[in-house]
Amino acid sequence: MMGAKISAIVIFDIDGVIRDVSGSYRRAIADTVEAFTEGAYRPSQDDIDRLKSEGCWNNDWHASQELVYRYFEQCGQARGDRPLDYDALVAFFQSRYRGTDPNTMNGYICQEPLLVSNGYFDRLTDAGMSWGFFSGAMRAEAAYILEGALKLKQPVVVAMEDAPSKPDPTGLFDAIARIEERHNCHNNAPVIYVGDTVADLYTVGKAQQERPQRTWVGVGVLPPHVHHNLERQAAYSENLKNAGAAIVLDNVEQLTPEVIGEIVD
Rank of each mutant, 00 (worst) to 15 (best):
E231R: 13
Q209V: 05
R211C: 13
L249M: 13
R232L: 05
L172V: 03
K206A: 14
Q213K: 08
V226I: 10
G244W: 00
A234C: 03
L172S: 07
N242Y: 00
R178K: 13
T197K: 05
N184W: 08
L201K: 08
D196Y: 02
K241P: 03
E180F: 02
V217Y: 04
A235F: 08
G218C: 06
A246Y: 01
H227Q: 14
L172G: 06
A234L: 10
E180Q: 10
I176Y: 09
Y202T: 06
A243T: 09
A199L: 03
V226K: 06
L249C: 08
V248T: 09
P223N: 09
E238V: 00
K241Y: 01
L249N: 07
A246Q: 09
R178Y: 00
V198G: 11
V217R: 12
D250F: 01
D200P: 10
G195D: 04
Y202R: 12
H186D: 14
N239C: 06
N188Y: 05
N229L: 03
Q209P: 00
Y202M: 14
L230N: 08
H227L: 15
P212I: 06
N184T: 06
A199K: 00
A199C: 11
Q233N: 06
G171I: 01
S237A: 13
D174P: 03
S237I: 02
V204C: 14
N242A: 15
D196T: 04
L222A: 04
N242K: 12
P224A: 06
I176R: 15
G244K: 03
L230V: 13
L230R: 10
A207L: 04
H186N: 07
G218T: 00
A234I: 01
N229D: 15
E231W: 07
R182D: 07
D250Q: 07
P223T: 07
V248N: 11
Q233P: 02
V248Y: 09
P223D: 08
R178C: 07
V194A: 10
I176Q: 05
H228A: 14
Q233V: 04
I247R: 10
K241A: 08
A177H: 08
L222E: 09
A189Y: 03
Y202D: 14
N184R: 12
T203R: 06
C185M: 07
Q209D: 10
V194E: 08
Y202N: 15
Q208P: 00
E181V: 05
V204D: 12
N239T: 04
G220Q: 02
G218A: 14
A234N: 13
V198C: 14
T197Y: 00
L249R: 04
E210I: 01
D174F: 02
G218N: 08
T215H: 12
G171Y: 04
C185I: 06
R211N: 12
Y236M: 09
V221W: 06
N188G: 07
Q213E: 15
G244F: 04
T170I: 02
S237C: 08
A245C: 05
A234P: 00
Q233E: 14
A177R: 07
I179N: 06
V219K: 05
P223L: 07
V217W: 01
Y202E: 14
P212G: 14
L172E: 14
V194S: 15
A235L: 14
H186W: 15
W216E: 12
R178A: 10
